[in-house]
Simulated scan of single mutants.
Amino acid sequence: MKKIILLLFIAITLSSCEKDDICADETTPQLVMEFYDVTNPTVKKNVNNLKVTGYNSDNTLMVTPLATFNGVSVIKLPLRITEDTTSYSLILNSAITTNINEDKIQFDYTRQNVYVSRACGYKTIFTLNSPNGVTRTDSNTTDGFWMQFINIQTTNIDTENEVHIKVFF
């Protein structure tokens, strides 16, 4: 009788266990930008002291920068999952306090929530608007754009395994 009760207890205990809910799948992707030399468009070019600061929904600049990238040719930027536009200020060579060259870049897109799994829930995928998915402006027109040319590689942003935007400077 004790063996039956023990086996019954073990069976109930084991049947109540569930698979661990660990999200190993990719979640909402970030936009991947890669930088190239404008004089030799096949050569990647590292950015130096690239300070990236986001804009709030009311188009005011955030107080705290998102990040400063140094010595890399690829950066990832998050897009807003609750709005159809995201804007950033990109300042190249931000360590230099004189002659700051700031370009503003705005991404316009549509969003779609996609179910991933029970552990991960939903992720948002983005599609850049065509043909105006990326707009750049310059706060100081006398210094000109440091981002001389922007090339959209793909309008679908559903993974971080590919380059979405190429920037030539």
Rank of each mutant, 00 (worst) to 15 (best):
V72K: 10
C23E: 06
T155N: 13
C23R: 07
C23I: 06
F107D: 01
K76C: 04
D20L: 15
M1W: 13
T155P: 00
N156L: 13
S57C: 05
A95W: 09
T155C: 01
V38F: 10
V38W: 04
A95I: 12
L8S: 14
A95R: 10
I12G: 08
T85K: 15
T155V: 11
K166Y: 00
S139V: 15
P131I: 06
Q30E: 14
V47K: 01
D58K: 06
F9S: 13
I105H: 00
L79W: 05
L61M: 07
M33E: 03
N40P: 01
K104G: 04
S87R: 11
N132T: 11
V43T: 15
E102C: 07
Q112L: 13
N70G: 05
I150C: 00
Y88C: 01
T39G: 11
D158K: 05
C17P: 01
R80A: 15
L7T: 09
D58M: 06
I22E: 10
N46F: 08
Y115L: 09
P29A: 07
D84Q: 11
W146P: 01
D143S: 14
A11P: 02
N113G: 07
E83W: 06
I4Y: 10
D84I: 09
E83S: 14
T110L: 08
T98G: 08
S139I: 15
T159S: 14
I5R: 12
D84A: 09
L7Y: 08
A24S: 14
L79I: 06
A11R: 02
E18P: 00
T97W: 05
D37G: 03
D37I: 02
I10H: 04
T85Q: 13
T39H: 13
D103T: 03
T42G: 10
L128I: 02
I4R: 09
I165L: 05
Q148A: 10
F126V: 03
R118G: 15
T135P: 01
I10N: 04
N46C: 05
R118E: 15
T68H: 03
V63D: 13
T53Y: 05
A95Y: 11
D158T: 07
S15F: 10
T85D: 08
I165R: 00
T142C: 03
F149D: 10
I81F: 05
Y88L: 02
T60Q: 09
N113T: 11
I4L: 14
F9Q: 07
S15I: 07
S89C: 05
T159F: 06
D158H: 07
Q106I: 12
K2N: 12
N40Y: 10
I22V: 13
L7S: 11
D20V: 12
D20H: 09
H164R: 03
P78Y: 07
L61A: 04
L66M: 09
E162K: 15
T68G: 05
S117N: 09
I96A: 14
N48I: 10
P41Y: 01
Y36N: 02
F169V: 07
N40V: 11
I91G: 02
L8V: 10
